[in-house]
């Protein structure tokens, strides 16, 4: 091979600085990795890596501090919004975000997240909703669908005895303190691109001092759902999206002018 015949290589895809490169513990097919990467890409694009502090939660999200290359703390189960509040109030010029699953945010941590939103706490929250407790092996979550089989609702979630799922974004849209509340999904490239824009908007909300921002990300959990990644994506599209409609639930008027 002679040199003249080689094309000059140009990098078209690389690891964002905000990712450490550590191999993740996420199961094959899991969308946590996509969410981690999107957050990293956005922080890189904003040039905020050195001014950002992440708050990890409990569940599959717990080890995000191994994957994101920035200062991080790790909260007790459900308390990430409270920890983020403490950090943000002391260091208001840093960008502070939490990364929480549905069990952490919508069950054990419901008080902390609702009040952080109600206070208009100037933090960003990335909420992975995969309708079950992934880390402990697929138990029923507050977001599990009616009839959904989990290891703690083995014949399917019976709403008569186990109650109904919580639609978090819809609920938070009623809070005056919340400025940016949207639901996106990670099931295909188009929706992933939309999710990334939403993550950017959430951080922009915070940087502008507009108050609480949250992006709910519908996610798949093939391991605990017990179906293949491809069928999981199908299940998300066919079952989850009708129950958890994608969309903008609350947008602060000042955000309208931002074009991404």
């Amino acid at each position: 091979m002679v040199l003249e015949n080689c094309e000059i290589e140009t990098t078209v895809f690389e690891r964002p600085d905000s990712l450490t490169g550590t191999t993740s513990h996420y199961c094959p097919g899991c969308t946590h990795g996509i969410a981690n990467r999107l957050i990293a890409e956005v922080i890189d694009e904003m040039g905020m890596r050195e001014k950002t502090i992440g708050v990890a939660s409990v569940g599959c999200s717990v080890f995000i501090y191994n994957y994101l290359n920035m200062d991080f703390v790790q909260a007790p189960h459900g308390r990430a919004p409270a920890m983020a509040t403490g950090i943000k109030r002391v260091l208001p010029d840093r960008m502070v975000f939490t990364y929480q699953g549905d069990g952490d945010l919508a069950s054990i941590g419901m008080a902390e997240i609702v009040h952080a939103a109600a206070r208009g706490e100037n933090i960003s929250v990335f909420f992975l909703n995969n309708t079950n407790y992934g880390m402990t092996g697929g138990q029923m979550a507050p977001t599990s669908m009616p009839g959904q089989k989990t290891t703690s609702s083995q014949t399917g979630r019976d709403v008569e005895t186990q109650g109904f799922p919580i639609r978090v974004s819809e609920m938070f849209s009623k809070l005056d303190g919340a400025s940016y509340i949207v639901r996106r999904s990670l099931h295909d490239p188009k929706h992933i691109r939309m999710a990334k824009k939403a993550i950017r908007m959430a951080f922009e909300t915070q940087v502008r001092g507009l108050g609480f921002s949250m992006v709910e990300l519908l996610s798949i959990c093939p391991t605990n759902w017990g179906i293949s990644p491809l069928n999981s994506i199908k299940w998300l599209e066919e079952k989850m999206i009708p129950y958890y409609p994608l969309g903008d639930y609350k947008i602060h008027p000042a955000l309208a002018e931002i074009k991404l």
Partner: peptide
Amino acid sequence: LGAINMVYGAACT
């Protein structure tokens, strides 16, 4: 519970 975890976050700084 909220208060002590706010302290936890603040103490990290």
